[in-house]
């Protein structure tokens, strides 16, 4: 007669223990999550910002540009921008556009490679590339972000004829990329990802600088005036339609 009530009491106690344990654990985790959330968000933002500054030489300010309803718009503080495809616009101290940083991803040798690359509409060139995330083979495929010589391929890479990977050491044209010996698949994957990113984004990039006036920092209008005097090479190209329209037409033809 005695075991049944004992079991009953004990199962209540079991439920009580587990409930209390779950509650205490949940409360603690919520606390830790709330405490670390802003720090983690700041870390991520800082990492992205560093990457944008790295792939767009000369950049001192950056901001998101989102694709809304088929057209590019300056990403403000709108809460919906997280769901929209986003690239980043870089400006130098004078407020002149240094280029667009385009994050893109695609299949590598082992897993998805996520990268970000800087595109300069003025010259129609890729000016920098950084791998954000990859699981390529250590020692071989990971040279796509460890090998400085490979990174140098992307410092002035023309996109006009589509970028072509060539065997190591045989790069002669501005649109060719020297592959890494022993990591041909990973190298080709990087080129493929950039070509795919170009196909998706370059046609959308507006000619010139449509957001010169509505850029966040107040000194930007002054910067636009200063720009041509300080750097005569770039801003005129930027305002002239042909170079910036060239990529779109090139994208449309194939």
């Amino acid at each position: 007669m005695s075991p049944p009530p004992a079991t009953e009491a004990s199962s209540l106690r079991m439920i009580g223990t587990m409930t209390f344990g779950g509650l205490a654990s949940g409360l603690l985790l919520v606390g830790v999550f709330e405490f670390t959330k802003p720090i983690i968000a700041a870390n991520d933002a800082a990492a992205l910002e560093r990457a944008v500054f790295d792939v767009l030489p000369g950049t001192t300010q950056m901001g998101p540009v989102v694709l809304r309803d088929g057209a590019l718009a300056l990403g403000g503080d709108g809460t919906d921008q997280e769901d929209l495809p986003t690239i980043y616009l870089g400006r130098d101290t004078n407020g002149a556009i240094t280029g667009y940083a385009i994050p893109y991803q695609g299949t590598g040798f082992q897993d998805v490679i996520k990268l970000i690359y800087g595109y300069q509409p003025a010259g129609g060139v890729v000016v920098g590339m950084q791998i954000l995330d990859s699981k390529e083979t250590p020692g071989l495929g990971d040279k796509i972000f460890k090998d400085k010589a490979f990174a140098a391929n992307f410092e002035a890479l023309a996109v006009q004829p589509e970028i072509v990977p060539v065997p190591n050491g045989s790069k002669t044209e501005a649109h060719q990329v020297d592959c890494i010996t022993g990591a041909t698949i990973s190298s080709k994957a990087v080129v493929k990802i950039i070509n795919a990113g170009n196909a998706e984004w370059l046609g959308l990039l507006p000619p010139g600088d449509p957001w010169a006036a509505e850029s966040p920092p107040e000194q930007v209008p002054v910067g636009v005036l200063d720009g041509p005097q300080d750097e005569p090479a770039e801003p005129p190209l930027e305002q002239a339609p042909p170079p910036s329209q060239a990529p779109p037409s090139q994208e449309a033809s194939p």
């Binding site: 223990t17 587990m18 344990g21 779950g22 603690l28 985790l29 830790v32 983690i40 870390n43």
Partner: peptide, 25 residues
């Protein structure tokens, strides 16, 4: 009777805490 599940709750809580802390730090 529930000791293993109770241990797992305790362990998982500490693991999640260190996971977030490491991610932040």
């Amino acid at each position: 009777q529930v000791r293993i599940s109770a241990y797992i709750i305790i362990i998982a809580t500490f693991v999640t805490v260190i996971d977030y802390l490491l991610k932040a730090a």
